[in-house]
């Protein structure tokens, strides 16, 4: 309140603009993130969690795919309703995580706005698809979504590679989208390729217990659900962003 009054000329970036920006980021991230989190959780519960619970039957030994002299096992997941508390946890964590994605996405919108690019629902959709590529598709190329019971390299190594891949891909996409000229494009491609040229950490043996059909379906479904939720988040966040402007 005090400092604008002592000024003779209006400031180039008045405090109210920053308040509006914060409100715009907060509204986009919170509302779009909340809705995308609920959407993602519902899709996961419908399409992904049953496969995960089915895989746990193999993990626990209740079902076996290869036994002496036999190949093959029954298909079918335990009913979802047997573990409602567990699914509430999935809903809650999705809401937290997707609001987090929403804040990062809206921070990106704000950076773009400073460069004169105004985000609306359709541009938001593109941003959301970029988020899907950076946070789901690119890391899955090296470390596919894991069915429970999968044996994998050391968790710390995988998390490090995962984070490196996400950051490199996001930066690479940003260079390609906002850079000017072929050098930026080439730099973007190099950044996106680098984690895969280095290679994700993997074991030198296979230990999987569950049927391969289940693992394949799980990976594809996890990516599909993620794509749908990212598209939803981008569309909703972009729409709210343009309304709050």
């Amino acid at each position: 309140m005090t400092w604008p009054m002592i000024r003779a000329t209006p400031p180039a970036f008045p405090a109210t603009d920053r308040t509006i920006m914060l409100k715009q980021i907060g509204a986009s991230a919170l509302f779009a993130g909340l809705a995308a989190g609920v959407f993602a959780a519902l899709l996961q519960l419908w399409f992904v969690v049953p496969l995960l619970m089915e895989a746990e039957l193999y993990e626990s030994g209740a079902r076996a795919h290869f036994t002496d002299g036999h190949i093959g096992s029954d298909a079918g997941a335990p009913p979802l309703g047997d573990a409602m508390g567990r699914h509430l946890g999935t809903l809650a964590i999705n809401i937290v995580g997707w609001i987090g994605f929403g804040f990062v996405l809206a921070a990106g919108f704000a950076l773009a706005a400073r460069r004169g690019v105004e985000v609306d629902a359709r541009r938001g959709l593109l941003w959301g698809l970029g988020g899907f590529v950076a946070l789901s598709l690119a890391p899955a190329f090296g470390l596919p979504p894991e069915l429970p019971g999968t044996f994998a390299a050391e968790i710390g190594e995988r998390q490090t590679w995962w984070a490196f891949c996400v950051i490199a891909t996001a930066l690479g996409l940003a260079l390609m989208a906002f850079g000017r000229g072929p050098a930026w494009l080439a730099g973007g491609v190099a950044l996106i390729a680098a984690p895969h040229l280095i290679g994700a950490p993997h074991l030198d043996r296979y230990f999987g217990s569950a049927a391969p059909e289940l693992a394949a379906m799980f990976s594809a479904r996890a990516l599909g659900v993620s794509a749908a939720a990212w598209a939803f988040l981008g569309l909703a966040a972009g729409w709210i962003w343009s309304r709050e402007a």
Partner: peptide, 22 residues
């Protein structure tokens, strides 16, 4: 003004990353 705009954006991004980490 530019600095505090960037600070606002950085705060939003770090807050989001914190939620993602959790």
């Amino acid at each position: 003004g530019t600095l505090s705009e960037i600070a606002t954006i950085a705060f939003a991004a770090v807050f989001g990353l914190g939620l993602i980490f959790a």
